[in-house]
């Protein structure tokens, strides 16, 4: 039912701007990445150091499919250790309002719904993530906060779903191609 519809990516919008912000400002509290090690280091040192990048061949990359609110499928790749928020930001994925608190567990806009078999193998959820998740819209049994989920090889090709924002399913209008 996800009919094609017009492309609705206005690249200059939220996600890309956030990427710019990540590298140029340091928010007071600093992001508290849910993923340790690589992702945190990468975030701190963004833009990525080339050497770290070069050692990753494209085979090491993990593909993730996002089903957006309007049913469109967005496909992107990330490195092991990247959080799903990193994937959205680094690839300028156009998901309305995603990642408002920039990964600091203070907003729940990064809520994603996972496939059962992937959900079961995710790292245990912390109380803090659960507290924030409790405020998310359209909570399901397989919901998690994307900024807290780090990519692993076993996740390659997984599909995550962005929950409906408003209770009633409204026809979304897009006129972004007008100018």
């Amino acid at each position: 039912m996800a009919a094609p519809g017009p492309a609705r990516l206005l690249r200059a919008a939220a996600a890309s701007s956030r990427r710019w912000l990540f590298s140029s400002t340091s928010p007071a509290a600093g992001p508290r990445p849910g993923c340790s090690g690589a992702a945190a280091a990468a975030r701190a040192a963004r833009p990525f150091s080339l050497s770290a990048r070069a050692v990753l061949s494209s085979e090491d990359k993990i593909t993730v499919h996002f089903i957006n609110r309007d049913g469109d499928k967005l496909t992107a790749k990330g490195k092991p250790g990247d959080s799903l928020l990193d994937v959205v930001v680094n690839n300028n994925l156009d998901i309305d309002g995603f990642g408002a608190c920039e990964g600091t567990l203070a907003c729940s806009t990064c809520h994603l719904i996972f496939e059962d078999h992937i959900f079961e193998k995710l790292d245990a959820i912390t109380d803090e993530e659960m507290d924030m998740l409790d405020l998310a819209y359209g909570l399901t049994e397989t919901s998690r906060l994307g900024c807290q989920i780090c990519l692993k090889k076993s996740m390659n090709d997984m599909t995550v779903r962005v929950p409906e924002a408003v209770a009633d399913v409204r026809q979304s209008v897009d006129m972004s191609k007008n100018s």
Binding site: A3, P4, I67, N68, R69, D70, G71, D72, R161
Partner: peptide, 8 residues
């Protein structure tokens, strides 16, 4: 996720 593509 329903409200996909009605041709605008």
């Amino acid at each position: 996720a329903g409200a996909g593509g009605r041709a605008p």
